[in-house]
Amino acid sequence: MKNWTLLFLRISLGWLLVIWGADKIFNVEHGIAVANTFYFGFLASETLLPIAGAGQILLGLAVVLGLFRRWVYPVQLILNTASLVAVATSIIDPWGWFIDGTNALFYPSLIILAASLLVMGFRDEDRLALDKLRQPA
């Protein structure tokens, strides 16, 4: 059961990166709006955003497949931490009782960060990752 759970978690985390990356490529205006609203305009460029999106798609696919996990998991953690920080007020006060402009729909950013830490922490036990399958017994 643990192997399938780690696989499912890895696929769902990686595919989230693929979706976010594709949004940067195919819906550049939305990506720019997100960058301007949550990330202080970082990469809010019609030229840079699709390049970042392509990188995010490649990272997501590596996570999904379980390739290069020693390197891609920390990068995934950095991206998911940045997302959490960007919406931190919605984690602290999801219903906006004390902080204006929060949104309960951003609360799962905390769960995503926890999942990222979990796949990193159990990397050696993920027997269905391609990295693990490529290693000699």
Score class of each variant (00 low, 15 high):
92 I>Q: 05
133 L>K: 11
22 A>I: 06
57 I>N: 04
68 F>R: 10
40 F>N: 12
20 W>H: 15
17 L>N: 08
8 F>S: 10
14 G>A: 12
92 I>V: 15
13 L>M: 15
6 L>P: 00
119 V>I: 13
113 L>K: 01
20 W>Q: 15
12 S>L: 14
102 T>N: 03
119 V>F: 01
130 L>R: 08
16 L>H: 07
123 R>K: 12
55 G>L: 13
109 S>L: 05
20 W>C: 12
88 A>Y: 08
82 A>T: 09
84 L>E: 02
109 S>K: 03
117 L>M: 11
129 A>N: 10
109 S>Y: 03
73 Y>Q: 03
8 F>N: 02
67 L>P: 00
126 D>Y: 13
56 Q>W: 06
78 I>E: 02
107 Y>M: 11
94 P>L: 12
49 L>I: 08
50 P>S: 10
87 V>W: 03
125 E>T: 08
35 A>E: 09
33 A>C: 04
53 G>H: 01
56 Q>V: 15
58 L>K: 00
16 L>Q: 11
91 I>N: 11
66 G>L: 04
5 T>C: 13
96 G>P: 01
38 F>N: 02
19 I>V: 14
94 P>Y: 15
9 L>C: 14
59 L>Q: 02
58 L>N: 02
41 G>S: 07
94 P>G: 08
79 L>P: 08
62 A>C: 14
16 L>K: 06
82 A>I: 00
131 D>E: 10
59 L>G: 06
60 G>Y: 00
4 W>N: 15
28 V>L: 13
85 V>W: 08
75 V>W: 01
66 G>N: 04
52 A>G: 05
13 L>W: 04
122 F>N: 01
52 A>R: 08
69 R>S: 14
61 L>Q: 03
132 K>W: 13
55 G>M: 06
121 G>S: 05
116 S>K: 02
135 Q>I: 01
69 R>T: 13
72 V>C: 02
85 V>A: 09
12 S>A: 12
24 K>V: 05
109 S>I: 01
70 R>S: 13
46 E>S: 11
101 G>L: 01
72 V>G: 02
72 V>S: 06
54 A>Y: 04
95 W>N: 02
79 L>M: 14
18 V>D: 04
40 F>E: 15
99 I>V: 10
107 Y>Q: 09
11 I>H: 09
79 L>E: 15
41 G>M: 07
23 D>M: 12
84 L>Y: 00
110 L>N: 09
123 R>D: 15
101 G>M: 05
114 A>W: 11
92 I>E: 05
36 N>V: 04
103 N>D: 12
93 D>P: 13
126 D>I: 10
93 D>Y: 01
25 I>H: 06
33 A>W: 15
64 V>T: 06
18 V>R: 00
89 T>E: 14
83 S>D: 04
122 F>Q: 04
9 L>M: 14
88 A>F: 13
10 R>Y: 09
94 P>V: 12
84 L>P: 00
58 L>W: 01
88 A>L: 14
5 T>L: 15
108 P>Q: 10
54 A>C: 06
72 V>D: 02
28 V>Y: 12
101 G>K: 07
42 F>A: 15
118 L>V: 04
95 W>M: 09
81 T>L: 10
118 L>F: 08
53 G>N: 02
33 A>D: 08
103 N>R: 11
88 A>V: 06
86 A>W: 03
61 L>K: 07
